[in-house]
Design a protein around this nucleic acid. Sequence first.
DNA 1: CCCTCGATGTGATGTAGGTCACATAATTAT
DNA 2: ATAATTATGTGACCTACATCACATCGAGGG
Lengths: 191, 191
Amino acid sequence: MNARELLKQHVFKSASLTDEQFDYFFSHFSQQSFKKGQTIISEGDEVECEYFVLSGCLKAFFINDDIKMYILQFAMPTWWTSDYNALYSHSRATINVDCITDAEVLCLSNADREKLCSEIHQVEHFFRWRTNRGYVASQKRLLSFMNNDAKKRYEELLTLYPELYNLVPKHLIAAYLGITRETLSRLYNGR
Amino acid sequence: MNARELLKQHVFKSASLTDEQFDYFFSHFSQQSFKKGQTIISEGDEVECEYFVLSGCLKAFFINDDIKMYILQFAMPTWWTSDYNALYSHSRATINVDCITDAEVLCLSNADREKLCSEIHQVEHFFRWRTNRGYVASQKRLLSFMNNDAKKRYEELLTLYPELYNLVPKHLIAAYLGITRETLSRLYNGR
DNA sequence: CCCTCGATGTGATGTAGGTCACATAATTAT
DNA sequence: ATAATTATGTGACCTACATCACATCGAGGG
């Protein structure tokens, strides 16, 4: 499926735009390709855009003490990602986004999103529901962190996103679960 | 300040409604008073409304194994709370909301929110931004969970919301931090 | 005014997961 | 192909926090 169709099907799940409105909406996105390992946002950048993933897999992560990495989000096709704190508050990035695999994305600037939201009521509706769902997912993950041990969080992750198992190296899975790669290795090798 | 003014000032921070639009918006809220300890949402309920806090302090919490409590959110004046997962997906409540102190709230039904959002573009704008901020705050809390130990999370909480220190019993602070009351006691008594 | 009962403090001990060290397999670059 | 990274496995040991047990304190209801 091409970029336009993928975005269209995604948007139409929660908003009803006319074809003309969607074409206008789509005209504000720019497509970009990245290679595995390439950086999209690094700490300290001014963040201008958010990204809709067309293919491949990204990670949004935070580095503490310049040593430990915590993964906030894996972003797979039809997921959105950015440093939303920086994007919304016009501050510098504190999180990084890079490519776990080769990836293609659609890029939408903060300014264009706001313009589109104010011009087209249904676009604002779409973005409200996108964030609503993100908020609920984030609350669930927080609860899972408080309530479950590492093993249960690991099983939960693989149930929710089985494709990650083969796509993403284990030390990144560990960084998402908030444990060390050693502990993760011991968990699934059972000792 | 009365309920109408409190909500108006809150809404006008991120949306520009005419006075007539605000009056219409406000007419969909109903005011309710609760006593300390009263329950607003309990697990298993059908969730119809979200709540804007006028006075007092609520907690939104999850009970695991019918034993351990995890607090997702304290809700103080001008904060919104509900079981958003249940509210948005029309499912039964999995979290509870009750009153830490006597409290007054404004109640808005899911149906009325959606109606208002579709009737008034600026109302949709307001709710998009409210959730945007909630999403960012939730991401930050998640990072804090992964990155900081209990002591640092405790200091962070008191820096962010110093009023909680005297308002909220310590075992509830512990339930927010995801630790036991014993550990919290040891943290701030330093042993 | 007393008597609960909820909130808090503190010791002893258990445990999940972290840290460090090193070995080896799998990719990537030259 | 070969060298150099990067990813993974595993043992020994350490630490933050949980659990359980019991003592004390303080506020609210009869």
